[in-house]
Amino acid sequence: METARQPVLKFENVSLRFEEQPVLDSISFEVWPGQSRILLGSAGSGKTVLLKVALGLVKPDSGSVSVFGQDLRKLGERELFDLRSRIGMVFQEGGLFDSLTIEENVAYPLVNQRVLHCPPEEVRPKVEESLSFVELEHTLDKFPSELSGGMRRRVGIARAVVTEPPLVLYDSPTAGLDPITSYTIMALILKQRDLKRTTSMIVTHRYQDGHMMANYIYNPRTGQAEPAGSNGNRAFQSTVFMVLREGRLVFEGTQDELESVRDPYVAKFVKQSEH
């Protein structure tokens, strides 16, 4: 059990500048297996960049990033590709390839990730399974441009989880969506967490998303997200909140701790949701 003893994702004093502008300022944290990390921050606080650093898409100027115990600095581009096959990433606007159909989009990691060795005849069933997970199994032959914004993000989720990665990163999965669609997306993220036991890291500017992660669980019998505690369900304990401000990590802790913080910037995120 190598994964149980070590963090899935570990940042140590990671700093990054874009043209003299600090984007990440000595960020350190650890994500343990089974945890859900909610990363809150306003626009431009470095949330998206942090996820890209975790994936090895952007190299930090200093500090070290380890994923599944492997130091990203020591890996070549090819080894990085192999490592990325164990991380699912949901991009902000879905990041779907608009020249490919939905089926080809979801199949893309299966076909292209060499370490997975997915036999061609297993691709289609896996794609169908993943699309039915996000309830979009009827869109196989459509192109991304024919889908609504919410549907594109659901396809993005299907594509990220089709390889059943142990770690999934979500970049603002609910940004720019109406409350009902946002709820659907969050319910899917809960479903992925509770059914597949994935470790997840969710970047968002909405406190409600974190609240839902911490207090709701997916009920496989009804197929709905339900408040934890009802029907004898236990609350989901391992949700950790982090707040990022101008590249610095200004808070890390549980929901209760977050709600009792006096710092005005941090408190603003909590207040958002109270009306």
């Binding site: 990325r84 991009f91 902000q92 990041g95 594509r159």
Partner: peptide, 13 residues
């Protein structure tokens, strides 16, 4: 639209 990043994330150069 982050498709280049997505490509790298999904295993292609």
């Amino acid at each position: 639209t982050e498709q280049i990043d997505a490509m790298r994330a999904l295993g292609t150069d």
